[in-house]
């Protein structure tokens, strides 16, 4: 009798599929996965478990590799400049942790989310800033502060507490929950972050977050011999950078004038956070 079912669904493999492992990874599994990825790469997670001989689903393997095993993961606490960048990116992207983590080498989206919920959102509230909108808190500051404190202790929450306002904020739509499984070492990561948080004090007001830090350790600073004054000097400066006069002509022909009035309004929104 001709079998209609695909070969992949034969009894033996069905039993194997039903027995897929869950829960903490063993050191032996870690080694198998790390060796396999080092040898074969990780471009097809769906079929990787079978090819590597692991009794786990592709998602579990990918999470283990991305959040724990890959060699370029940083183990050290988040530095001040990384924190500054997280704040700026969160202002623009909201809770899109993958996009934010993608801009911080060696950091995972899970780590960034935990750091935000356990440390940065509370820091902003202490400075009178709404961590969802990055704008000054309203008269409901006390209530939202308490709500955020509750939320901060619940590590499974994907987003920080929302202020109890019926009016919807434009930024609310940007938020998206991250429902990925928490890796087995989540607790350890959080402990490290708590330690880092204890070590750090709040330095200055929120305004400093949107101003570059003073250059206390300058690089090779080569100032020009004499002070320059007036726009003629700037014009000469630009001329010295332009090697081909024809190139300048090409741009002069362009008629589009970019509107900058809107730019000022935008900057006002950012600077508003300082006041």
């Amino acid at each position: 009798m001709k079998r209609k079912r695909p070969a992949a669904l034969r009894g033996g493999e069905e039993a194997a599929a039903a027995a897929l492992k869950r829960g903490p990874w063993t050191p032996e599994e870690d080694e198998v996965l790390a060796r396999f990825v080092a040898r074969e790469g990780c471009d097809r997670w769906r079929t990787l478990p079978r090819r590597a001989g692991l009794l786990r689903c592709g998602k579990s393997c990918r999470l283990r590799w991305m959040n724990y095993l890959r060699p370029d993961i940083k183990r050290c606490p988040i530095a001040d400049d990384e924190e500054d960048l997280i704040l700026r990116l969160h202002r623009l992207l909201g809770n899109r942790w993958s996009l934010i983590a993608g801009r911080l080498p060696g950091r995972t989206d899970n780590e960034i989310k935990n750091y935000w919920n356990s440390h940065l959102s509370k820091k902003l509230i202490a400075q009178g800033i709404d961590p969802r909108t990055h704008k000054p808190l309203t008269a409901a500051a006390d209530h939202s502060n308490a709500a955020a404190a509750v939320a901060a202790t619940s590590y499974k929450k994907a987003v920080p507490a929302k202020p109890p306002r019926t009016a919807s904020s434009p930024a609310a739509g940007i938020e998206c929950s991250d429902d990925r499984a928490r890796p087995a070492d989540g607790g350890g990561d959080f402990a490290a972050m708590v330690s880092a948080a204890d070590a750090e004090g709040f330095e200055g007001g929120f305004g400093d977050q949107f101003c570059a830090e003073d250059a206390v350790h300058g690089g090779f600073d080569m100032g020009s011999a004499s002070a320059m004054v007036g726009d003629d000097d700037f014009s000469s400066f630009l001329d010295s950078l332009i090697n081909d006069e024809q190139l300048g002509d090409l741009f002069v022909v362009e008629g589009n004038d970019h509107e900058h009035g809107n730019g000022e309004i935008g900057h006002g929104d950012v600077m508003e956070s300082k006041q």
Partner: peptide, 21 residues
């Protein structure tokens, strides 16, 4: 009111550039 050239920026202290990360 002077030009400031930062040579070898890739080796500069991260605080100088502030967005090295």
């Amino acid at each position: 009111n002077r030009s400031v050239w930062l040579c070898n920026a890739q080796s500069a202290d991260s605080k100088t550039l502030s967005t090295c990360a």
